[in-house]
């Protein structure tokens, strides 16, 4: 019985300490010291929140660089028992989870590659990201889109290419990760440079 009492008492005390005091203390510190990060690293234009610097968003227009394929979904507004495709749904993260020998995966990738050009295309532009919210593409993923953007915006390709190069982020701390471009940040710069 004394063992059971110890189990119950310590469970309750530790729930308060690690389940309430700890996360609330971190929340308090975050909100006071690091409010930008604590609230999702939001990007605003004027008063409007246009997104988070960390989370990708869907671009369909030819005038914008597109991010990686995303297979997130949402509840169908017409029928709550069904789901519909909703790329970059930041309230329901998911990847495709398709296996390497999946016929569906091979066909989808082939279609994505054909939409971009002839022959093999950059891996990041034909595969779905893990989260469906990947904010980045690789420099070659941006490279295959430059001609399309230049045409849609009536600008020389060299100008767009220079913009991409300026917005290519190096490896973190010079070593970690790989070269990458934040698509939302690049598109904001694109709007600013070529209205």
């Amino acid at each position: 019985m004394t063992q059971l009492r110890a189990a119950i008492v310590l469970s309750i005390l530790f729930t308060l300490l690690t389940g309430l005091v700890y996360p609330l203390a971190i929340t308090g510190l975050g909100q006071v010291l690091l409010p930008h990060q604590a609230n999702g690293s939001l990007i605003k234009r004027g008063e409007t929140i246009i997104g988070s610097a960390l989370v990708g968003q869907h671009f369909a227009s030819d005038r914008y660089f597109q991010g990686r394929p995303s297979v997130t979904s949402a509840v169908d507004p017409a029928d709550a028992t069904k789901t519909i495709d909703a790329p970059y749904n930041a309230a329901n993260s998911t990847g495709s989870n398709l296996g390497p020998s999946s016929k569906a995966l091979a066909e989808t990738m082939e279609a994505r590659a054909k939409a971009l050009g002839v022959g093999p295309q950059p891996a990041d532009m034909v595969t779905a990201s893990a989260s469906g919210l990947d904010p980045h593409i690789t420099p070659s993923g941006a490279g295959v889109q430059i001609a399309r953007i230049a045409k849609a915006r009536g600008k020389p390709e060299a100008e767009i290419r220079a913009l991409v190069e300026r917005h290519t982020e190096g490896r973190d701390l010079g070593v970690l990760g790989q070269l990458r471009i934040n698509v939302l940040v690049l598109n904001l710069a694109l709007d600013a440079a070529t209205p």
Partner: peptide
């Protein structure tokens, strides 16, 4: 290999960062 540049490796279900 015919539609995804092998230099990128297997990127299905992975993140660029």
């Amino acid at each position: 290999a015919a539609f995804s540049d092998p230099a990128g490796g297997n990127m299905e279900g992975k993140e660029v960062r």
